[in-house]
Amino acid sequence: MGLSVSDRGKAVATFRYVHVELMETLAQWTPTSPEMEVKLMLGEHIWDAAQNADALGKRTRELRLPLQHSLKPVDAYVHLLEELRQERDTSRRLSGFYDALLPGLDARYHAYLEQTDALLDGPTVRILEQVRNTSARMVQQSRALRAELPALGNVDRGWIETMKQRDSRIPTLVS
């Protein structure tokens, strides 16, 4: 059985919560990350995350929820987001965000797109495809920055693998 309108609404509102969190995380990191090139990349990506949240928030209204409605994800994912947000090291910030969090979200959007009906849920499909394209560009830009400034890529591989595993062990974000 496919997703009901209520299921879709909850999922979209949950994704919106996440993108607002991503926006606020990047905003919090911008003045405290010393490297200028990192600040400038984060500044652009703040707007990307905000636009994603906005598009999802307009969709929640269409799915019979309030406009710009957010639903908190499951506790395990909220803790993961909060932990990363408190990270102080620039390299870990970048790796956690662009190597773990965004690819993990992309996998979840892919799973949603596989599950939903592309005709009944057409507008959500369109939004998530745009979100995925934007995220792919953000990841690419972060890789280009770390190639330009290799010191930013010095991260304990064990730490990042742990982050990825914690993410992948959370079966669904929807509470």
């Binding site: 926006m23 606020e24 905003a27 600040k39 984060l42 652009e44 703040i46 707007w47 905000a50």
Partner: peptide, 27 residues
């Protein structure tokens, strides 16, 4: 960026403007 992170409860429309300003100033 600080205006975004320091005032999470503000109206979404003004937060969207602040986010856009972040991108503009970076540019």
């Amino acid at each position: 960026a600080r205006n975004l992170s320091d005032f999470p409860g503000e109206d979404w429309e003004v937060r969207l403007h602040l986010a856009r300003q972040c991108a503009d100033e970076a540019r």
